[in-house]
Write a protein that binds this DNA or RNA. Structure first.
Lengths: 97, 97
DNA sequence: TGAACACATGCACATTTGTTAATGTGTTCG
DNA sequence: CGAACACATTAACAAATGTGCATGTGTTCA
C-alpha cells in the first residue's frame, strides 16, 4: 500500500533530518562496526553522557537503532545497514572534491 | 587531502540537513528528470513562488543545484546525480516497510 | 519608456532543534 | 540495605530554521 506522495517525502525528510547531525553520524559509524554500549560511545565521541543519550533517543524514536540491556549496560545496534549505506554515500559525496 | 574526521562528519551533516526538507526533496525529484525553471516548480509543487525561491537558495548555497538564465526565466539543474541517488535511497528506505 | 512577467531578497515571527545541568530509574555488588 | 555504576529523562535556554508578506532586480515587449 503506497502512501501519498506528500507523506512519502515527509517520511524521507524525517529520516534525513534524523541523520543530519554530525554526532549522530558518528554514532552510526561506530554502530556500523557492531553493537556498542553507551559509555563506549561516550568515550570514543568525547561527548557528555547526557548528550549522547539525547541523540540515542532521537535515533531510537526513528527506529534506526535498537537497544538491548546487558547486565547494567545497554547495547545499541543498527536496525538495518541500509542507513549506514546512506551515511556512507553522504560522506563520500562531500569528501570527494 | 583528507579533512579531519570531525570536519568530514560536519560536512556530511550539512549535506543531509539541506536534504532534510520535503519540499527540497520534491525539487530534487523534479530536477532529476531534467532542468526546470522556477514557475514550473511552483506549479508542480503547489507552493508559493517566494517559498520555492527560498528553498532554491538553500540548494544553491549548498552547491547542489546550478542556475542559468534563459530569457526571463532561470533554469535550475542538479549539479550531480549522486545527490538524487541519496534521495532515492532515503525514500526507498522509508517506503519499504 | 512603461507595463507585465519571472525571480530574488529582506524582514519579522513562530517553531523546531541542540545543548547543558540536574535529577530520576534500574542494576550489580558489598 | 546502601553505595556505586550505567543510563534515561526533565526542564530551561540559545540558536537555527521555515514561512509569509512586502519589496527589489532583471527581462521582454508594446
Amino acid at each position: 500500500m503506497a502512501p501519498r506522495a506528500a507523506t512519502r517525502l515527509e517520511e524521507a525528510g524525517q529520516l534525513l533530518r534524523v541523520l543530519a547531525a554530525p554526532i549522530r553520524l558518528a554514532v552510526i559509524e561506530q554502530l556500523a562496526d557492531g553493537p556498542r554500549c553507551v559509555h563506549e560511545l561516550v568515550e570514543s565521541l568525547g561527548a557528555s553522557q547526557s548528550l549522547v543519550s539525547q541523540h540515542l533517543r532521537v535515533l531510537r524514536a526513528a527506529r534506526l537503532v535498537t537497544s538491548e540491556r546487558r547486565g547494567r549496560e545497554i547495547a545499541y545496534a543498527l536496525t538495518d545497514n541500509q542507513v549506514a549505506h546512506i551515511v556512507r554515500d553522504a560522506i563520500i559525496h562531500t569528501s570527494g572534491r
